[in-house]
Amino acid sequence: MSLLELFVIAIGLSMDAFSVAICKGLSMKRISIRKAGIVSLYFGTFQSGMPLIGYYLGIQFQDKITFIDHWIAFILLGFIGIKMIVDSRKSKCQIAVESLTDEDRDDSLDFKNMSVLAIATSIDALAVGITFAFLKVNIALAVSFIGIVTFTLSMIGVRIGNVFGAVYKSKAEFGGGLILIIMGTKLLLNHLGLINF
C-alpha cells in the first residue's frame, strides 16, 4: 500500500473523530488550544491505537486466509464506509447552536467521558487494522499517519463546532465513508488485476 493510499485511509478514518470533535466544540462554552489539544489527543491516540490492536489480531490469521485476504479487506472497508454514510444521515449533534444557552454548554474533559467518545469513534479503526495485517502494510507508518491526521482534524473540528455548530459534521462522515468504500474497491480491483494504480 502506497503512502498516498495510507494517507487517504487515515483521512477517511479520522472523519468520525472529526465529527464528534465538532459536537464537542459545539458543547463548549469557551475553547482554548489546551482544551482542543486534550480532545485531539484522546481521539488521535485511540484512533492510532485501535488499528495497531487490529493488526496484531489479524496477523494471527494471516497465513490461514491469504487466498481471500483482499476480499476481506474489501468487505471490511466497504462495511465501515457504508456504516459511516448511514450514520451521517442521523444527527448525533441534535442541538442547534442557537438553542444552546450558557448553562447547556459543557467544558468537561473528564477521563471517563472522553475515553468513551474516543473508543466509540475508533472501533472502525480496529477493523481497518485487521485489513492492514492481510495487506502487509507498514503498521508503524500507518498508525502514525492515522494518529497525526486524526489529531490535526480533531483540533480543527473542535474549533469549527465552537464557531459554526454542527453544519459540517454529516458531510465529514459521508465523505469519510465514501473514501473507505473507494479504497476497499481499489484494493480488490488491483488484486484481481482489473486496474493497476
Rank of each mutant, 00 (worst) to 15 (best):
M1Q: 10
V8Y: 04
I11E: 01
L13C: 11
S14N: 05
S14I: 01
D16Q: 06
V20M: 11
I22V: 14
C23R: 15
G25F: 04
M28S: 01
R30P: 05
I31N: 01
R34G: 04
G37I: 00
I38M: 03
S40F: 02
S40M: 00
S40E: 02
L41W: 10
F43H: 03
F43D: 02
G44K: 00
F46C: 07
F46L: 15
F46D: 04
L52C: 04
G54E: 07
Y55I: 10
Y55N: 11
I59S: 08
F61T: 02
D63L: 10
K64L: 12
K64I: 06
I68N: 10
H70F: 12
W71S: 08
A73N: 10
A73V: 15
F74D: 06
F74S: 05
L76E: 05
G78Y: 08
F79T: 13
I80P: 08
I82C: 09
V86E: 13
D87R: 10
S91Y: 12
S91N: 11
Q94R: 12
A96E: 15
V97D: 10
L100F: 11
T101A: 00
D102Y: 07
E103K: 13
D104C: 08
R105T: 02
D106M: 05
S108F: 07
L109E: 08
L109S: 05
K112Q: 09
N113S: 13
M114L: 14
M114E: 13
M114R: 08
T121M: 07
A125S: 14
A127D: 05
V128K: 06
G129E: 11
G129L: 07
I130M: 12
I130H: 02
T131L: 08
A133K: 12
A133F: 13
K136M: 12
K136V: 13
V137S: 11
I139A: 09
S144I: 15
G147A: 11
I148C: 02
V149N: 00
V149T: 08
V149M: 04
T150W: 00
F151Y: 14
T152C: 09
T152Q: 03
S154E: 03
S154Y: 00
I156C: 06
I156K: 03
G157A: 05
V158P: 02
V158G: 01
R159Q: 09
I160L: 14
I160Y: 11
I160T: 11
I160F: 12
G161Y: 02
G161D: 06
G165L: 03
V167C: 04
V167M: 07
K169E: 15
K169H: 12
S170I: 07
G177H: 02
I179E: 08
I182L: 11
G184H: 09
T185S: 15
T185N: 10
T185R: 06
L188R: 07
N190W: 05
L194S: 07
